[in-house]
Amino acid sequence: MKIVVGITGASGSIYALRLIDVLKEAGHEVHAVVTDSGWQVLEYECKVTHSDLQARVDMLYDNANVGAAIASGSFQVDAMAVLPCSMKTVASIAHSLSDNLLTRAADVMLKEGRKLVLVPRETPMHAIHLENLLKLAQLGVKIVPAAPGFYHRPQTIAELVDMLVGKICDQLGVEAELFPRWQG
């Protein structure tokens, strides 16, 4: 599969890095785009630089380049995940603003009927956040809040991250056994 990973300035960039690693380990082609504030959070939370991320993905795009391949429906991409997804990005996608490459790529996923997964990290949310998420869910976007479960009795932060990344993989249609499934 060819998958785009979008990273915004919400807290939780560790989820995006782990997803990229899981996708690459499974042999998928990964394209990435990061907002300006996304770069700030990647560096602050994970000490990841532009060159670090570029080494992890097949293609890293400049978010200002709205003419990049992922901005066109003729570029064949199977799915896109935006994580963490800021409420600004949610609003831009919900209202088709397409004011940067990340939101344009997400808009393309919607218009082409391809898989789009958003991982909002905001808490608490107010009514406008929820309305925008509802609007997107009604369009078929999968909303996977950055809220890992605890039924698998995680002992480390890595296990919490893997649980959420596993749920994202489920929505992307990517096989990954990252956490024990509930057995009842």
Rank of each mutant, 00 (worst) to 15 (best):
K2A: 13
I3V: 15
V4A: 15
G6E: 06
G6S: 12
G6I: 05
G9A: 03
A10E: 08
S13W: 09
A16Q: 07
L17Q: 03
L17G: 01
L17V: 11
L19W: 02
H28G: 00
V30L: 09
V30E: 08
A32W: 09
V33W: 15
V33D: 12
V34Y: 07
D36H: 11
S37Q: 08
W39R: 05
Q40G: 12
Q40K: 13
V41G: 06
L42E: 12
E43Q: 09
E45P: 04
E45I: 09
V48P: 02
T49L: 07
S51K: 13
L53K: 13
R56Q: 15
V57N: 02
D58Y: 04
D58P: 02
D58W: 00
M59W: 00
Y61H: 07
D62E: 14
N63E: 12
A64K: 13
G67L: 12
G67Q: 10
A68R: 05
I70S: 04
A71L: 07
S74A: 14
Q76I: 00
V77R: 14
M80S: 06
A81D: 03
A81E: 02
L83C: 13
P84G: 06
P84V: 07
S86F: 04
V90W: 07
S96F: 08
S96T: 06
L97R: 10
D99C: 06
D99M: 04
L102V: 02
T103M: 02
A105S: 15
A106V: 02
D107W: 03
V108H: 10
M109S: 04
K111H: 13
E112D: 11
G113F: 07
G113R: 12
K115R: 15
L116P: 06
L116F: 04
L118E: 07
R121K: 05
R121D: 00
T123S: 10
P124V: 03
M125T: 06
H126M: 04
H129A: 00
L134R: 08
K135A: 15
K135L: 15
L136I: 04
G140T: 04
G140S: 08
I143A: 03
I143K: 01
A146E: 10
A146I: 05
G149E: 01
F150T: 03
Y151K: 12
H152Q: 11
R153A: 14
A158W: 06
L160N: 06
M163R: 10
M163Q: 11
V165C: 01
I168R: 01
Q171W: 09
Q171N: 14
G173W: 05
E177H: 15
E177L: 14
P180Q: 11
P180S: 08
R181I: 02
R181Y: 05
W182Q: 08
W182E: 11
